[in-house]
Design a protein around this nucleic acid. Sequence first.
DNA 1: CGGATTTTTGCAATCGTTTGCACAACCACC
DNA 2: GGTGGTTGTGCAAACGATTGCAAAAATCCG
Lengths: 344, 344
Amino acid sequence: MSDTGRTLKGLARSLGVSAATVSRALSGHPGISTGTREKVQAAARAAGYVPNRAARALVTGRGSGFVGLVLQDPGYGREHSYLGEFVQGLGQGLSDHGVDLFLAFVPDAQAELGMIRNIVSSRRADGLILGRTTEADPRVAWLLEAGFPFVTHGRTDHDPAPFDWLDTDGAGAFAEAFALLRGLGHRRFGLVSIEEPMTFRLHRVEGLQAAMAGTDATLAVATSPRYDTDRRDRAIRAMLTAPDRPTAVLCLFDGLALAVLDIAAELGLAVPGDLSVIGFDNIGPAAHARPPLSTFDSDTLEAARALAGILVARMTAPGAPPVHRLIQTRFVPRASHGPAPANT
Amino acid sequence: MSDTGRTLKGLARSLGVSAATVSRALSGHPGISTGTREKVQAAARAAGYVPNRAARALVTGRGSGFVGLVLQDPGYGREHSYLGEFVQGLGQGLSDHGVDLFLAFVPDAQAELGMIRNIVSSRRADGLILGRTTEADPRVAWLLEAGFPFVTHGRTDHDPAPFDWLDTDGAGAFAEAFALLRGLGHRRFGLVSIEEPMTFRLHRVEGLQAAMAGTDATLAVATSPRYDTDRRDRAIRAMLTAPDRPTAVLCLFDGLALAVLDIAAELGLAVPGDLSVIGFDNIGPAAHARPPLSTFDSDTLEAARALAGILVARMTAPGAPPVHRLIQTRFVPRASHGPAPANT
DNA sequence: CGGATTTTTGCAATCGTTTGCACAACCACC
DNA sequence: GGTGGTTGTGCAAACGATTGCAAAAATCCG
C-alpha cells in the first residue's frame, strides 16, 4: 500500500503503532507518552499528513470545518463592493480559527430557506451567518428551533433576542445626521427609503423620527422597491420637484444617495448649494461621486470580522448567553452637505 | 431510534427495505424496480431526507461537493467590488451544478501554496480556482503535478498550457485603445503600470507595444508596486510633469486611472482637454469619477460564471483536452478621452 | 520480588453512505 | 416442471477518522 503518510492507518503502520495511538498523539489527547507523541508528530509533519475532513466530520457528527453564508442572488444586487468587503472580513475572521467560509447562492428568499435546511441536514456547515435580516425573519425562527448555531448581521423583532447578533447603529447615525443638518439651518427634510421590511430600515427611520420629535422640522418621504430603479428615480424626482421640496435629504444607503445626486444634477439643483445629501455605508463610488458624498462609514470589514468571531465562539460554547453587539458608525464629511439655502 | 428519515438506514428501516436499495433508488442507479424507486423517493421527500455529505465524500473518495477559491488577504486589496463580482459569478455558475464554493483566506503567497496543499490533501474540495496568475506560477506547477482539477483566471507562461484557463483579452483592448487615441491625433502616450509579474500586465503591455510598432508614437512608462500608493502617485506625478508629458495615458486598471484623474486635477490639467485617460475593468467608481472614466468592461461576472462551468466540466471529465478561453472586452466610452490638444 | 497501581497502547465499534457480489424471485420456453 | 435468462434486492465490506474499554507494559511499594 502506498498510503503511507496520506492516511492515519498508513502513518500508523509505518511507525509500528496503532491508528488509535496516532490519532490521540496528533490531537493532543492525554494518555500518550511524550516520547511517542513527539515521534508521531514528527512523522506526520514529515509525511505532510493532513486528516481527511470527511472522515473526521462523519465520526464526530460535527466539525465539517465550514461556516456557511447563503446569499440571495439579486440580494446584494450590484452591491458587489459591499459583498466583497463582507466576505473578506468574514474570511479573515474565520481563518484565524481554522474555519473556512462556504458560500451558497440562491435565487430567492424561499430557496434560501430551503438551502439553509439542506445545509443543516447535510451537516455541510457547523454554523451559519445570516445577512439582511427582516423583522420577522423565517430563517431565524427555523434555526432557533433546529438548535443550530448562527449569528445575524442585523436585528429582528425579537427583544431580547435569544441568539447572537451584530448590527450597526443606524438609529444613532440618522439622529446624528439630523442634528448636524439642523444645526446648518435645514428645516425641510427628505428621506429616501425602500419598501422592504428590513430591520435596518426600521432602525434608521426610527432614529431619525426620534431626533425630529419636538422640532419644527418637516419630513417628506420617497420610497420604492429596493431593486426597481425606475420607480426609485420617479419617487426621488417627485420629491425634488414638489412645491416645498426638502433642502436636506437623508438616504437609507449610498446607492440611493448617488441616485439623488444624479437626479439633482439633472434638475439643475446645486449640491450642496440648493440641496444637502447624506448617505449611509460609504461604498467605493461615494468618494468619487459629484460632489463627493458625505456619508456614514460602518466599517463592514471589521463588522464581518467580529461576526466571524461571535459565531466561532457560539459553535464552541453552544450554551453561552447570547451576544449582542451594536457598532457605532463614523460620519465621513465630504462635499454633498452644507448650510441651508438662504431663501428658506 | 429516532433517526427515521434523517439517515439512509433509518429511512430504509421505516420502509422495510435495505439501505442499499434506498441508496440506489435515490441516486437513480439501474436495477431497481420503478415501484420501489417511487416509493422510496416519495418517502425521502416526505421525511426531508438529505444525504450526509461527509459520509458520501468518505466512501466515494471524491465528491466533497466543494470548489475552493484561495484568496490572499491584501491580494484583492480594496478591490472589493471586483472580489464581490467574481465570487458572485462563481457562485452562480457553480450552483447550477449543485456545487458549493468555499473560500479560504491566507495572508501571503507562501501561505496560499500551503493552503492549496492542505485543501488537496484533506480532500476538502474537488477542484480549485486560481486567480491572479503570475508568469511562472508555483500553484499551477504544484497542482499540475498533483493531478488535481483546477482552472486559472489568467494565463501563465505555459504555451500551450496543459490545463484550463480563461482570460480577458487585455492585449486586444490595449491595441484598440491605442488605435482609438491615435485616430484622435495623440502621439505622445503614457502607460501607468505595476511592477509585479502578473500575466495580465504582460499581455496588456505587449498588446500596446505591438500596436505601436511602426508608428511614430512615443511611450512614457510609470510603474510602482501594486499596493504602494505613495510611490504610485509619485510616479504618475513625475510622468505628468515631465517636459514632453504624454497627452494620452493608458492605465493597467481602473484603480490607477482614478489616481491619474486625481493627480491631473491637482496639477490643473484638464481631462480630456489636456489629457486623455483610459482605464481597464470598469469598476463601480469609474462611472462616478470626474470626469466619468472611459474604460474597458471585461464582464467579471460572466467570466466567473464561465470559469465555474469550465471547472465543473474538468472535474467530471478529467481526461478531456484543456479548454482555453479568451474573453473579448468592450470599450465603454465616457468622458475621460478626446482629441489631442491642438498645440501638440 | 510479587502484587497493586498507574501509565501507555491496541482492539474494535462506530459514524452514514456507496457498491461488488451473491442470492432470490420471477418470467418464458421447450 | 426443469433449465436459462432476466430482474430486483440484500449482505457485507469498504472509506478514514475517533473513542470507550480492556489488555499490556511500566512503575511503585512494602
